[in-house]
């Protein structure tokens, strides 16, 4: 289903041209297979959306890439290096509560800077922290604590902190999933502006279950099916950037893409149901 991309990456490009390479990655939890045979190569600077229904293991896949979990089988490489644990090379934004509530916004960002650039003095760190907060539109709130901020502002802060790490890989786990529609749209645009505005584009893996969000943001959509989680489709989204949201949403191409995604999920659902009936059929025979 995904021809060129799932071919062995070493052949088409040098290993280091890839931001992330996953080879036959699988994961089990309590004896249950969560992810099976995930094979994926992401070129550096690509914006990839992991799209799938809940329970398909997309968050688990992100945690594996982050190094927060260890795969049961297979290998993950990030910019040519094997992933064995979390690293400053891969910043993560979680869905919510990423910031430490006992630190002000500036302290939260400063902490990341202190880890990424230990040589800096505290004064320099604080100035830089304020710059990162300015980048996400929080320049006036640096004194505030996460508990005093709205969900949208907290996520802006979390993005600022992750950017402050300066990681070439940015992993985002449904970062806008808990936000209201208006804030969600604002933050999507902010993220795209920051991503495309940087000189060396970051490799982004963005987990979502929202089809429109995936199409609007991504260069590429990796669709995951459930039980066990595995890649069921690999779609290139080649709408030119910058993307105009309304024109894009109304376009025929967008509708076609959404149709393809919906059909694929439907197909996976049917397959799963049939598998269940088959098991039942056997069980009834006994």
């Amino acid at each position: 289903m995904s021809q060129a991309i799932t071919a062995a990456p070493e052949i088409t490009l040098g290993r280091t041209d890839y931001g992330l390479i996953l080879q036959q990655v699988s994961f089990e939890y309590a004896g249950v297979r969560i992810l099976e045979d995930v094979h994926l190569a992401i070129p550096a600077g690509q914006f990839v959306c992991l799209l799938g229904p809940s329970g398909c293991g997309k968050t688990t896949l992100l945690r594996l890439i982050a190094g927060l979990e260890t795969p049961a089988a297979g290998a993950i490489t990030s910019h040519g290096e094997s992933v064995t644990g979390p690293s400053l090379e891969r910043g993560v934004v979680f869905q919510d509560y990423s910031l430490f509530p006992w630190m002000s916004l500036r302290e939260n960002v400063s902490l990341a800077i202190a880890k990424a650039r230990p040589a800096m003095t505290q004064a320099e760190r604080q100035i830089q922290a304020e710059e990162y907060l300015q980048l996400v539109g929080l320049q006036d709130a640096w004194r505030k604590y996460p508990g005093e901020l709205s969900g949208g502002m907290q996520q802006r802060g979390a993005i600022a902190r992750t950017l402050a790490l300066g990681s070439p890989v940015l992993l985002m786990d449904e970062p806008f999933g808990a936000l209201d529609p208006v804030n969600r749209v604002k933050l999507q645009d902010l993220l795209l502006a920051i991503w495309s505005g940087s000189e060396r584009k970051k490799t982004v893996v963005f987990v979502t279950h929202d089809v429109e969000e995936a199409i609007y943001l991504g260069d590429r959509i990796i669709m995951l099916g459930a039980a066990p989680g595995r890649i069921i489709d690999d779609i290139t989204v080649d709408f030119p950037r910058p993307r105009a949201r309304h024109a894009l949403l109304d376009s025929r191409e967008f509708q076609a893409l959404r149709g393809r995604v919906a059909a694929k999920f439907h197909e996976d659902l049917i397959r799963r149901l049939e598998a269940e009936t088959a098991i039942h059929g056997v069980a009834e025979g006994i």
Binding site: L68, G85, P86, L88, G91, V92, Y97, S98, F100
Partner: peptide
Amino acid sequence: PQRYRDNARILGL
């Protein structure tokens, strides 16, 4: 909470 642990690990504390 797990999320604090995860964030601390991500930051490499």
